[in-house]
Simulated assay, not measured.
Amino acid sequence: MSDGQGYRGFRPLADTASGVLDPVLRKRAGINLALLQSWEDIIGPALGNQSRPLKILWPRRAHEDDPFQPATLVIACEGFAAIRIQHETGEIISRVNAFLGFAAIGRVKIEQKPVPTAGPSRRVRQPIVDAAAEKRIAAVTADIEDDGLRAALARLGRSVIAEKAKRRS
């Protein structure tokens, strides 16, 4: 990380898989893999474990000149999570739009469906890095005010450092 060169030549398997799956998901469900993978980080662990995005329904445009209209995000959840999602719809829309980088979503539709709970198989074990790497990660993320974002970036840093170390050995 400190060499200033970055990781220009490094292309993780997830990027390759995303490149293959994103067009399929976009065509079939109007959704991308990054949104699916980051769902828990976007809406928080409590609701993220109890729900998942299913698809994005874009309104049909009669003409190419028609103005942009935001889409509907369809979310699968069950039981009490449906009530919480309904109550926090505005916040969820804001967070998803911030993640996507534009005001893509204007409405949320809830579908009552079983959602697999987050067990050991769904959570990836965090890689272990040495103390020096932890210190560098802490220094780089120290100025980030949002606790969730700081933690997510620290996890990302650990993963990148561990993957780089694994490739060296």
Rank of each mutant, 00 (worst) to 15 (best):
I75T: 06
N49V: 06
A133D: 15
L33H: 03
D147P: 07
G79W: 01
A118W: 07
G30K: 03
A152Y: 03
P23S: 01
I137C: 04
A165G: 06
K135A: 12
G157F: 01
K166I: 00
S159I: 08
D130I: 01
F99T: 05
P23A: 06
A103F: 00
K135W: 04
G19C: 02
P120Y: 12
P53C: 03
K135V: 01
I110P: 06
A29I: 00
I31P: 12
A133Y: 02
I42E: 14
L149Y: 06
G157E: 02
L21R: 07
A29C: 08
L25K: 09
D66R: 00
R26D: 13
T72D: 10
I105R: 03
F80R: 07
F80I: 00
E88Q: 14
P67A: 10
A154R: 11
E91A: 08
R155N: 10
H63N: 13
R26W: 12
A152N: 09
P45D: 15
E40T: 09
V140Q: 11
G101D: 10
G4L: 09
A62S: 11
T16G: 11
K113E: 14
T141C: 13
G157A: 13
S51M: 05
F99L: 01
T117F: 10
E88N: 03
T141V: 09
I161G: 03
R28K: 14
M1I: 05
Q112L: 09
R52D: 05
Q5L: 13
S94M: 01
S51I: 02
I56M: 08
L73N: 07
P59A: 10
R52C: 00
K113L: 11
E88W: 00
E163F: 04
I83A: 15
P127K: 02
I43C: 10
Q5G: 12
F99S: 10
T72Q: 08
K113S: 12
A62I: 06
A142S: 15
L21S: 06
I110D: 10
K109M: 06
T16R: 11
D143E: 08
L13G: 05
I42D: 13
G6K: 03
F102C: 08
A154T: 12
I83C: 05
F68C: 04
R52W: 07
Q69T: 14
T117G: 14
A14P: 11
I75A: 08
L149Q: 14
A98R: 12
R8A: 15
I110H: 04
K135D: 08
L36M: 10
V74L: 04
S18N: 15
E134D: 12
I31T: 04
V108M: 04
L156A: 15
H63I: 00
L13Q: 15
D147F: 07
I83G: 13
G90Y: 00
A131Y: 01
A29Y: 13
V74Q: 10
E134F: 02
S51K: 02
Q126Y: 00
W39E: 06
R60V: 03
N49H: 13
I110M: 05
R168F: 03
I137S: 04
F99C: 05
I85F: 03
S159C: 00
V96T: 06
